[in-house]
Structure formats: C-alpha cells, structure tokens
Amino acid sequence: MSSTVSSILEAFTRRDWQSSDVTGTIRIAMIGLGWWTRDQAIPAVEESDFCETTVVVSSSAEKAARGAELSETISHALTYDQFHEGVAADAYDAVYVVTPNGLHLPYVETAAELGKAVLCEKPLEASVDRAEKLVETCEQADVPLMVAYRMQTEPAVRRARELVEAGVIGEPVLVHGNMSQRLLAEVVPDPDQWRLDPELSGGATVMDIGLYPLNTTRFVLDADPVRVRAHTTAESPAFEEVGDEHVSFGLEFDDGTLAVCTASQAAYQSSHLRITGTEGEIELDPAFYNRQDRGFRVSWGSQSAEISFDQVNQMTEEFDYFAHCLLTGTGPLPDGEHALVDMRAMDAIYTAAEQGCDVELDTS
C-alpha cells in the first residue's frame, strides 16, 4: 500500500487533465465585476496558459470601463444591455458568469444564443427550477457548460479522490466537513448585499459556503447523497430574511458513507474536510479557501504522512482546465447535470431544516 500512496503523491501538483501538445487561447468575457472578479478571476486568468480576458461586462459603462483597466488584454467594456444585444460578440469565445446567483440564467441564455461556451459560478441559480432551465438552455443550444467548482481542479482534492479510489483508506465510512467565515465583519461588511436577499441568493450559508463540503465530498467519494437532515439558525437581524446564518446538515450517500457538514457566515474563518475509512483517513485542513494554503494528511494502517506541496491558484487551474477542454473538444466537468444534484440536495437541506425531518432525494 505504501508504494500506491507514494506513486499518487509523487507529483502532487500535476495537471492530470493536461495534454502536452495543446496550443491556443480561449478569450473570456467576464459577466459581473464584483470583488471576486476583480480580485480573483481576472488576476487568475492573467497567470493562465490557455485563456485571456478580452471583455468585461457590468451594470454601468463607468464600472465596466474601470474593469477594463485591470488587464491589458481587455479590449471591450460593455454594459449588461450591450452584452444582451450581442455587442462585441466576436471578441470572446466563452463567458464566465459571476453575477448574483438569481441572475445567472439570463446571461447564460444570451451566451447560449450567441453560441458561446459557459463557465457559470456555483450554485447554478437561486432555485432548482431556474437551474434546470439554465442547463436545458445550454443543452438545446449545444454549448458547453461547466460549473465553477474550483475544488475539483485543486490538486489536493484530486489526489484525495485518487487515494480513495485506490482503496488506501479502505471503504469510506464517515466524512466531516466545515466552512465558516465572518461575512459581515471581514468579507463584505454591508448588510445590504445580495447574499442576504433570498431572491438573489437562494440562501445565505448553505448556497454560498455549505456547498463546498457538500460538493467536494461528492467529488472525492464519487458518490451522491440520497437522504439529508439539517438544522439552521439565524441570530443576527441581517440574516432573518434568508434564515441560515449557521447550518449543520447530515448526508447519507448512495455508497453508504455518512457525512456531517457545518457552515457559518458568522464564525471564525475555518475549513476542513476529513474522510475516514475502514483502514485509514485523509484530511485537508485548511481545505476550501483559495487565499489559504491547503494542508494534506493521509493515514493508513500504522503509517501517516503529512504532505507539503507547491500551492496553486485554484482559479487559474479552473480557468485553464475549462479552456483546455474547449481547445481539445472535450466536454468540461463538472457539467450542468452534476450541479443540479447539488441544487436538489441544497433544496432538500432547507426543507429538512424547516420541517425537522429527513428528506429523501430522487436519484432516478
């Protein structure tokens, strides 16, 4: 077993999805110029091998013009109306949609009409119905849709999945995951923000950060939840309308694994994922924040290894993977159908919390 562990961890940060002979550049239009786009996405593309930002789209001409100053490759600054009108459509090959959740659909619809590939931020939308319509729109237009689960291109997470698949920890039995931050104190110190508007967000904590342990567990286990239970609380007046300032939820997966996940928008910044099996354990701590170095530990039998590795920019990995898929004609993953499982699971989490009972998920 030690040789298996060594072979998987030998080249920890490798891009196992990258071909050596791929050339070309995918031109990206950034739809939405909030802090994430300005501080994370545009700089990440600046570092990328296979894409560049050529168009920015925002609510006003002035804001778009300021966004255009963030990279020398940006040649067009558009308003949302201009984007919908198809202005400068020949200047980009794909769009990155990073508006509030409840506004993803109209921009994806326009991108699909224009024949542009779509990288859409998670969660897909603010409701299951709108998410289903979004996926259907891309399928009918035959445009590639990738959902921006950056953890799935994070080398530490990909190595964890390989170790589980190789049986290093035996059969997975338990998963513990957490993600927490102080949203109003440290991240976006404004109570009048879209995350606290249920029409735009769909929920403050489950939809925003509870999604990380949920989806990363699905990816590492290669399994889907079949039953959920949950409890939510809202102590601050700012969270009363959305209802979930803090959340805990339990998941039963189709492979028999049990998971317990917690998330909070008003707690010390922390994140971890621990997968315990019959023969060993894998732990990522810290796990989910791009601005924190990830930690990685694997234990099997009487042996344990804490791995130091070159940290990567998760956003750069995500954009390069997306562009690489487009350049090679490969369908990008995670796709819309994968993301719909999360949408239905999160909807079930809210239902379980409201009704105080287990909710089964339709896996048909």
Results as ranks from 00 to 15, higher is better:
Met1Trp: 12
Glu10Pro: 00
Trp36Ser: 14
Arg38Val: 15
Asp39Ala: 14
Phe50Ala: 08
Glu52Ala: 14
Val55Phe: 03
Ser60Trp: 08
Lys63Thr: 15
Ala64Cys: 11
Thr73Met: 06
Thr73Arg: 11
Ile74Trp: 03
Glu85Tyr: 02
Ala89Cys: 13
Ala89Asn: 13
Val95Asp: 05
Thr110Val: 07
Glu113Arg: 11
Lys116Val: 09
Ala126Pro: 03
Lys133Trp: 09
Cys138Tyr: 06
Cys138Asp: 10
Arg158Leu: 08
Arg158Ala: 14
Glu162Gln: 09
Ala166Asp: 07
His176Ala: 04
Arg182Pro: 05
Leu184Thr: 09
Glu186Ile: 07
Val188His: 10
Leu200Thr: 10
Val206Ser: 07
Asp208His: 12
Asn215Cys: 03
Thr217Gly: 04
Arg218Cys: 15
Val220Asn: 03
Val220Arg: 02
Leu221Thr: 03
Val226Gly: 08
His231Pro: 00
Glu235Thr: 04
Ser248Glu: 15
Asp255Leu: 04
Cys261Thr: 00
Cys261Trp: 00
Gln269Glu: 11
Ser271Trp: 04
Leu273Ala: 03
Leu273Gly: 01
Gly277Pro: 03
Glu279Ile: 06
Pro286Phe: 02
Phe288Gln: 01
Tyr289Thr: 08
Tyr289Leu: 13
Asp293Thr: 11
Asp293Gln: 14
Gly301Cys: 10
Ser308Gln: 11
Ser308Ala: 11
Ser308Asn: 08
Thr316Glu: 02
Glu337Thr: 14
Arg344Gln: 10
Ile349Leu: 10
Thr351Phe: 02
Ala353Leu: 05
Gln355Lys: 11
Glu360Tyr: 01
Thr363Glu: 09
